[in-house]
Computed example of a mutant assay.
Amino acid sequence: MSAASTTGSRGVDRRGSSRIGRRYAARLQRPGLWFALPAAALLAIFFAYPLAVSLLQSFFRGSGGENTFAGVDQYARLFRDPMILKSLGNAVLILVVQVPIMIALAVGMAYLLNQAWLRFRAGFRLLTFLPAITTLVAYSVVFRVIMTTDGGLLNQALALFGAAPIDWLNNEWWARVAVIASITWRWTGYNMVIILAGLQAIPAELYEAARIDGAGRWQTFRHIVVPQLRPVLIFTIVTSTIGALQLFDENFILTGGGPNNATLTPVLYLYKVGFQQFDFGYASAIAWMLVILTGIIALVQFRVLREKP
């Protein structure tokens, strides 16, 4: 038999075996597809379908129990609605003030709880993370009781030092402080755990090299810890920003968006438009505005905070 014929037969054999291998692999994948089908169906029913319906509904206007096509008028209405600007301003204020405070506290607590000399580290980590597993409604109700003007625990504590009671929930400035304080208490421990995991992933050789070079604690933190934590910090900042834009439970329970809409957020305004005014078309437009705005802000943060080459 010639060499050409032998090579040809081997090529045919390889092609035939590869086709058989692909068929066998496809046959093995079929059970996996069947197992994934229930999850895919639930995702389609409870996520994809409502998402598509809300987008479609944002182009209609409800009137007299009937929906009429409004085109992009619902989106144009967003630019004429002063409450949209007010709610976005409140969300930006919370974002600018609360997120840096929370991330700074989370980094400081994680750095402290990562020290080998600290005793009972596991217990402190647990206590710090406990607020994160508290339900949003439950802790908001507790904060409302604590910050009640008449007889609230916080004002009772202030009275022990001779301070006048503060109208926490009915004063515009103090209402914002109350919301920011409650959010910070709830989410600092959550971000601390994520940052702590990032700290524990830093190689010990980097700390040893810094000590050999004579770097102090602040220099080590600045030139070793912070650069190594950059991906983790980007993640926590982006998720915290999204959380600030989606804030609802705390404002709804603590202040109801008041006083004078000082704590009104876009999601709370969406709720009022949809479930109090029953204008579901405009509420859907607000929701999609938030989706687009959140995506833009997240993209900008990733571009600004990512490591430069």
Rank of each mutant, 00 (worst) to 15 (best):
211 R>G: 04
146 I>P: 01
290 L>H: 00
169 L>R: 10
54 S>Q: 11
267 V>H: 05
71 G>S: 12
180 I>S: 08
114 N>W: 03
184 T>R: 06
219 Q>G: 11
57 Q>C: 00
1 M>E: 00
298 A>Y: 04
160 L>I: 06
307 E>F: 08
16 G>K: 04
48 A>M: 13
212 I>G: 02
268 L>N: 05
1 M>Q: 00
96 V>Y: 10
40 A>L: 15
162 G>K: 09
302 F>Q: 08
81 D>C: 00
257 G>C: 10
223 H>S: 10
92 V>E: 04
240 S>Q: 12
143 F>I: 00
100 P>F: 09
34 W>N: 06
226 V>Q: 02
278 F>R: 09
308 K>R: 14
195 I>M: 06
224 I>Q: 03
265 T>I: 09
256 G>I: 10
183 I>S: 13
107 V>H: 03
223 H>R: 12
85 L>H: 11
166 I>V: 14
54 S>A: 13
102 M>D: 10
293 L>Q: 01
188 T>M: 10
139 Y>K: 06
187 W>L: 12
24 Y>D: 14
250 E>I: 15
246 Q>G: 02
147 M>S: 02
225 V>I: 11
202 I>Y: 05
87 S>L: 09
119 R>A: 01
278 F>A: 13
2 S>H: 01
276 Q>D: 11
46 F>M: 03
79 F>S: 03
71 G>W: 05
176 R>L: 08
274 G>P: 10
299 L>M: 06
115 Q>V: 01
251 N>T: 15
86 K>W: 01
36 A>K: 09
8 G>T: 05
136 L>P: 00
23 R>C: 11
138 A>Y: 03
98 Q>W: 09
198 G>M: 05
226 V>P: 00
249 D>W: 08
261 N>V: 14
203 P>V: 09
275 F>D: 11
180 I>A: 12
185 W>H: 09
150 D>W: 02
49 Y>V: 15
55 L>A: 14
139 Y>R: 07
288 W>M: 04
42 L>M: 15
278 F>H: 14
7 T>P: 00
234 I>S: 12
220 T>K: 01
244 A>N: 08
69 F>Q: 11
45 I>K: 09
70 A>G: 08
166 I>M: 05
296 I>R: 00
177 V>T: 13
19 R>W: 12
36 A>E: 08
229 L>M: 00
286 I>C: 06
30 R>I: 13
